[in-house]
Structure formats: C-alpha cells, structure tokens
C-alpha cells in the first residue's frame, strides 16, 4: 500500500507536468476563441519561437553580458512572433475570409509544414540546448522533490492565464475579441476591424507559444519533436473547454495529476504505459458527458 506521502509526491509531479500542458493549450484557446478555428500549427509555433529565441540568445550573448542578453533575446523573439502573426493574417487568413472553419483548419495544417520546413532550412535538425539560467536541480521540501524548472513553468502558466483573463474581461480590445468570437459578421458590421483582431490574437498565441517553447526547450532541448507536445494539449482543451482560458489551467492540472496517478496505481494492473493514452480516454469520457468541456461557453439556445 503506497503511503499518503508517496501519493502526494506523484500528484504534485503530475500537477506541475499538467501546467506545462496548459501553457501549450493556452495558444489553442486564444485562436479558437476568436475565430472558431482549431489551430493545428500551434505546435509548430512553439518550435519556431524556441528556435528563434535560441538564435537570438546567441547573437545577443556575443554582444553583451548574459543577463541583458536574455531579456533582449526575449523581446526580439516577441517581435518576431508579432511579425509572424501579421504575415499569417495577411497571406493565410485574409484570402480565406468567410470560408468554413474546416478550410481554415486545413490551412493551419499546411502552415505547420511550412513553418517546420522553413525552420529546418534555417536551423537544420540538430538539437539545441536552451538555458534559462535556472539550475536543473530540485528543491527538497520536507522530503518532497520539486523541480525548479517545473515550478518556474507553473508560475509562468498561471501568470499568463491571469494576465489574459484580465485582458479579455476588462479591456476594450479584449471585449472586441470576445465579440468577434461570438459573431464575426456582427462584429464587422459595427466596425470592429477583423484584420487587426486576428493579428492581435495570433500575436498572443505566439507569446503563449514562446513561453511554452522556453519551458519545454529548457526541459527537453529545442528539437523538432517539440511540436508534437501540442498533441498533449488536446485532451486538456477538451476537458477544460475550447473557449475557456481558466479552463486551460484546471484541465491541465486534472490531466497531469490523473495521468500520473493512473500510471502509478492503475498501470501495474494493465501492464503499464498507461500515461501515454490515459489522457485521451479521459477526454473521450468528458466529450460524452459534457461536450463543451468543464468551463467552455454554454451554447445559448433560446426556445
């Protein structure tokens, strides 16, 4: 029988891993909320952001002290992500305006290959190391092991979610974003410029991708398989709801914790390796009971 302490340790590691998923899922939610499109390219954006950051760090490190270099690289990468967002709006979204969501979804699949291909041309396929200056050694609190990077990631995820929730709820542009997600045409008719809104949304998704890329890159190294972690975000989205920003956090935690607990307690019964598919089964169960997710917007239907 496992001790409560062991259960706690497993749950905690799951919680931190789950918040890492949340970070990736956040990018999906932003774009889905504003355009009703599932952005398949989010994983590729994570990869791109990490690669750009690595290159920018190299350049700025050569020029000055390391601490300045980090922030300069961060700002430069943010600028690049905004430019990428503007380019996507101009060359992908604008020509496809008013097409059904499935067309846009297909376009984002194409975008994935484009981004990965271009990245490979520029950076090759080797694994880059990304150093955030956080030592890869755990804190030990009363015998509990907590990875410092995990903790950093959790803090970043929560901070981003709070910042975005405030932005969406209380600012003029955030309100316009929600309006666009409710009804494009009506938003257009009252003078909300959709092109501008899309650049904002994709830029925000780019920022989310950047932070996800930093954390995952620091943990695993910056490599092409990073874009696959995006798939881990899928069950998080289904659980938390595609349209809810706070839902991303809760969904991430639930997936992370249940996945780790299942691995430890159910795994031995079915022969292990449950972690790789448990999240998807959980998502399936949620779809059956509550299709909009735990926190998704309720579909309002007046009778």
């Amino acid at each position: 029988m496992p001790t409560p302490f062991f259960v706690l340790e497993v749950a905690l590691s799951g919680l931190l891993a789950g918040l890492l998923y949340s970070l990736v899922a956040l990018g999906f939610v932003l774009i889905y909320k504003a355009s009703g499109v599932f952005n398949f390219a989010q994983g590729a954006l994570v990869l791109l952001a990490a690669l750009v950051f690595v290159r920018a760090t190299e350049i700025f490190d050569a020029m000055g002290p390391a601490t300045v270099g980090f922030w300069a690289a961060l700002l430069a990468t943010m600028a690049v992500m905004v430019l990428v967002a503007a380019a996507i709006e101009r060359f992908l979204l604008r020509p496809l305006v008013n097409q059904p969501p499935i067309t846009l979804f297909m376009a984002t699949i194409g975008l994935t290959f484009l981004i990965e291909g271009i990245s490979q041309m520029i950076w090759g396929s080797r694994v880059y190391t990304l150093d955030l200056g956080i030592p890869d050694e755990p804190w030990i609190i009363h015998g509990l092991y907590i990875g410092k990077i995990d903790l950093f990631a959790a803090a970043v995820a929560i901070a981003m979610v709070i910042a975005l929730a405030v932005f969406f709820q209380f600012t003029r542009i955030g309100r316009a974003l929600r309006a666009v997600s409710d009804d494009h045409q009506a938003a257009l008719s009252i003078g909300i410029p959709l092109n501008f809104i899309w650049v904002v949304v994709w830029s925000l998704a780019g920022m989310a991708a950047l932070f996800a890329g930093l954390v995952w890159g620091a943990k695993l190294g910056v490599q092409f398989s990073i874009s696959v972690v995006a798939l881990k975000a899928l069950p998080v989205l289904i659980l938390g709801g595609f349209t809810s920003i706070p839902g991303v956090i809760v969904g991430g935690i639930l997936i992370g914790v249940s996945e780790k607990l299942a691995e430890v307690f159910v795994g031995p019964v079915v022969g292990g390796a449950i972690e790789s598919w448990f999240a998807y089964v959980l998502a399936l169960a949620v779809l059956l009971v509550r299709p909009q997710g735990l926190f998704g917007e309720k579909i309002i239907e007046r009778v």
Partner: peptide, 8 residues
C-alpha cells in the same frame, strides 16, 4: 436577426 453578442 439582431445579432447581439450572446455571451457578452
């Protein structure tokens, strides 16, 4: 058809 933003 009015087209209010339903969730706002």
């Amino acid at each position: 058809g009015r087209r209010c933003f339903q969730h706002l």
